[in-house]
C-alpha cells in the first residue's frame, strides 16, 4: 500500500515538473530556441509574486494573477528586443545569450533579495490533505497537478482551435511563407515567449508555495524541465506531462528506497528513457 501512495505522490510531483517544462516546450516547439534562463525566470516569477504578497498584502494566488501580465510583458520584450536577434541557422548565439541571461537574473535577484531562502505564505488550505480511497493526498500537490493539466489543455486549445495557434504552427513550419500570410514572425515569437512566461508564473506560484526558494535554484529547475521535455519528445505537450510524471515517480520511489536517491533516481529514469527512445516518447514526425 505504501507503494501506491509513493507512486501517487510521484505522479502529482510530475505535475510540478510539467509546469516547469511546459513553457520551455512551447518556446522550443515554435522557434527552436532553447532558453537556458528558463529556470531562473521561474525564480524571478516567484520573487515577483513574493513582492506583490509583501508589498500589496495580496494572497499568493491573487498575486500570481497580477504577476501574469507583468511576466507576459517581460517575455514579450525579452524575445522582441533580444532573443529574436539571436535566432538563425546557428544554434550557438541563443544558447550563449540565454546562458548570460541566467547569470544576470541570478545576480540581480541576489542583489535585490539576498541569498536567504524565501517561501510564499501558506494557509490552512494549502497544507490540507484529502483522503481519496486508501490514499491521503495533499491539496497543494493536487492543485499543482490539476493546474498542469489545465495549462496543457489550454495550450492545446490555443494551438489547434485559434487563429493565433495556426499562426504559431505555420511560423514554426516556415517563417518566410508565414510572412506571405501577413504574419510577422518576430511578433509571433514575442507573443509565444510572453505566453511561456505566463505559464512560468503558474509554475513559480506552486514552486514558492511548496518549498523554499533562493536566487540560485533556477538551473536545477531547468534541468528537471529539460528532462521532462526530452522524455516526452520535443514539442509534444502531453509528452511533457508524461515526462514530468516519469521523473516525479522515479524521484519519490527512489526516495522511498533511500532518501539520498531522490534526485539521482530522477536523472537515471531520464537516461533510461533516452537509451530506449532517443527521440523521446512522442517525437514529432518532421523534426
Amino acid at each position: 500500500m505504501i507503494w501506491v501512495d509513493t507512486v501517487a505522490q510521484g505522479i502529482l510531483l510530475g505535475g510540478l515538473y510539467a509546469l516547469f517544462a511546459a513553457g520551455l516546450s512551447l518556446v522550443f516547439g515554435i522557434m527552436r530556441l532553447v532558453n537556458l534562463a528558463h529556470g531562473d525566470l521561474i525564480v524571478v516569477g516567484a520573487y515577483l509574486i513574493l513582492l506583490l504578497v509583501t508589498l500589496l498584502g495580496l494572497p499568493p494566488f491573487l498575486a500570481a494573477l497580477v504577476a501574469m501580465p507583468l511576466m507576459f510583458a517581460l517575455g514579450w520584450g525579452l524575445q522582441k528586443f533580444l532573443l529574436n536577434r539571436t535566432l538563425g541557422d546557428d544554434i550557438l548565439p541563443p544558447l550563449l545569450v540565454t546562458f548570460g541571461l541566467s547569470i544576470v537574473f541570478q545576480n540581480a535577484l541576489l542583489e535585490g533579495f539576498s541569498a536567504d531562502s524565501q517561501r510564499l505564505p501558506t494557509d490552512a488550505l494549502t497544507t490540507a490533505s484529502v483522503a481519496i480511497g486508501p490514499l491521503n493526498l495533499g491539496v497543494m500537490p493536487l492543485l499543482t497537478f490539476a493546474s498542469a493539466v489545465a495549462v496543457i489543455v489550454g495550450l492545446n486549445q490555443l494551438f489547434y482551435r485559434t487563429s493565433l495557434g495556426r499562426a504559431f504552427r505555420a511560423t514554426s513550419d516556415d517563417p518566410v511563407t508565414a510572412s506571405l500570410m501577413g504574419i510577422k514572425p518576430a511578433s509571433i515569437f514575442a507573443t509565444a515567449t510572453g505566453i511561456a512566461l505566463i505559464i512560468v508564473t503558474i509554475a513559480a506560484l506552486y514552486l514558492g508555495l511548496r518549498a523554499n526558494f533562493d536566487p540560485n535554484i533556477g538551473p536545477a529547475r531547468l534541468i528537471y524541465a529539460f528532462e521532462a521535455v526530452i522524455i516526452g519528445g520535443l514539442g509534444s505537450l502531453w509528452g511533457t506531462l508524461l515526462g514530468g510524471i516519469i521523473i516525479g515517480v522515479a524521484q519519490t520511489v527512489g526516495a522511498a528506497i533511500n532518501p539520498e536517491w531522490q534526485i539521482l533516481a530522477g536523472h537515471l529514469a531520464f537516461l533510461a528513457v533516452l537509451l530506449v527512445r532517443p527521440r523521446g516518447l512522442f517525437p514529432r514526425a518532421n523534426d
Partner: peptide, 20 residues
C-alpha cells in the same frame, strides 16, 4: 507551393486571411 505541413488543408486556407 510551400504548404504548412503542420496545418490541415482547411487550416492552410484559413491562414491565408491572417494578415488581411
Amino acid at each position: 507551393r510551400k504548404l504548412f505541413p503542420s496545418l490541415s488543408v482547411e487550416e492552410n486556407l484559413l491562414i491565408g486571411t491572417y494578415g488581411r
